[in-house]
Design a protein around this nucleic acid. Structure first.
Ligand code: SF4
Ligand code: SF4
Lengths: 137, 137
DNA sequence: CCATTAGTATACCATTTAAGTCTACTTTAT
DNA sequence: ATAAAGTAGACTTAAATGGTATACTAATGG
């Protein structure tokens, strides 16, 4: 029941970009230094954020990363799912056949976990990076 | 961001006991068979539930397990925490010094994750095993 | 009082996942 | 052409997960 380290790093990276003037392109190296993230690992994370459409990347000299949209339009859920994939709090919520009990259809726990999962996703979705950046000041 | 297998097994075991007539003592073997849980693994889980005060155990002939209190008084949070320990969705919420950024005090993400964590714990706490057992029928 | 039943305590094991690193390659500005 | 920056993907190490095995302790009842 825990977010992984990569997700926390992703929060830091996106927060970092969110607090910059709109459209400013910044190299991974700077983010890594400022946010104390291992450089090579950060690159992998930024790649995932790029594929998820949260940031845009530019290669070559003067390359780097920039937010793909306004911070207000980026939720914590977007970032979590970019790194970890869709939130699934139990096996049977990923693939029903994972249940050794084979009672998924009639399992009250399954239904309840699903509604808890929806609530959790909702909580992450409520928070966007404009808010986060503002409360950082 | 996922519950582990042991926790799911614990849900099944407690649900099993909750649906029995109050005070009925049942051996681990029966729970294991009925709920399709590996026997030796279930014993470890039941031990944790016992230590957490959720079930009581009796050794020897006619021994087994019984709920320590009414199903209505046992929440999903009780069970999750019995197996996994307190819900902590990020490292810095376990131990602030885990943050390599060392900005915990002023980190907006930290504060936000804490409030999401409270909401999540609240969701688990809202659900008790009397409800679960009723909706199993 | 001892055989049987059932839980307890630990140690062990195999896989998988997490976190991070390395090497080699591609793109682009100057 | 060259240096700066991102991309690709193999590799590594350590820890967590899920499960077993062995030996022990307690209770019952014949
Ligand atoms: S027992 Fe219920 S909650 Fe657990 S895996 Fe099966 S369907 Fe899902
Ligand atoms: S950056 Fe913020 S959220 Fe992440 S570990 Fe540090 S304090 Fe916690």
């Amino acid at each position: 029941m825990k977010l992984n380290q990569a997700t926390d790093y992703a929060f830091r990276a996106v927060l970092h970009l969110s607090c910059l003037p709109r459209g400013r392109v910044v190299e991974a190296r700077l983010i890594a230094e400022e946010q104390k993230i291992p450089m090579r690992f950060l690159l992998k994370i930024l790649r995932l954020l790029t594929l998820a459409g949260i940031v845009e990347s530019y290669r070559g000299v003067n390359g780097g990363y920039v937010l793909a949209r306004a911070p207000a339009e980026i939720t914590m859920l977007d970032v979590v799912e970019a790194i970890e994939g869709p939130i699934k709090i139990n096996r049977c919520l990923i693939a029903p056949e994972e249940c050794s009990r084979r009672a998924v259809k009639h399992c009250p726990v399954h239904k309840t976990l699903f509604s808890i999962q929806q609530a959790l996703a909702g909580e992450f979705k409520k928070r966007n990076f404009q808010e986060l950046c503002e409360s950082a000041k």
